[in-house]
Amino acid sequence: MSRAAQGLRAWLLQRLSAVYLALYILIMPALMFNRDLSGYAAWRAWFGQPSTGVASAIFALALLLHAWVGMRDVLIDYVRIVWLRLTLLALFALLLLGSLIWVLRALLLAALPAGS
């Protein structure tokens, strides 16, 4: 990664993802407010819709990128031992990547026809 990417791009990524997170957190509950979403089937149908599914997938991606930049900042500030910092960064990257795969899998399963 270039030096520019480590500084400005990470910072921009954090800001832009924050905007998306804020919009999603405001709009999603508003959209869900007037719907009958009681029960598993209703939830699954709601998140199985392409629009909500894609919006939620982007939300998960934005959340994880946001968390990555934030966590990286904390580790750069406080962990001075380079090998320890790199190990923690790698562990956190794995955790985030795992979370992303898990969320995307859940969303994909919701989008498939029920029972499959």
Binding site: R3, A4, Q6, G7, W11, I76, D77
Partner: peptide, 12 residues
């Protein structure tokens, strides 16, 4: 000169 994660972007 200010690029990179440290010189400028340690400001939170």
């Amino acid at each position: 000169n200010l690029e990179g994660p440290f010189r400028l972007f340690r400001c939170h």
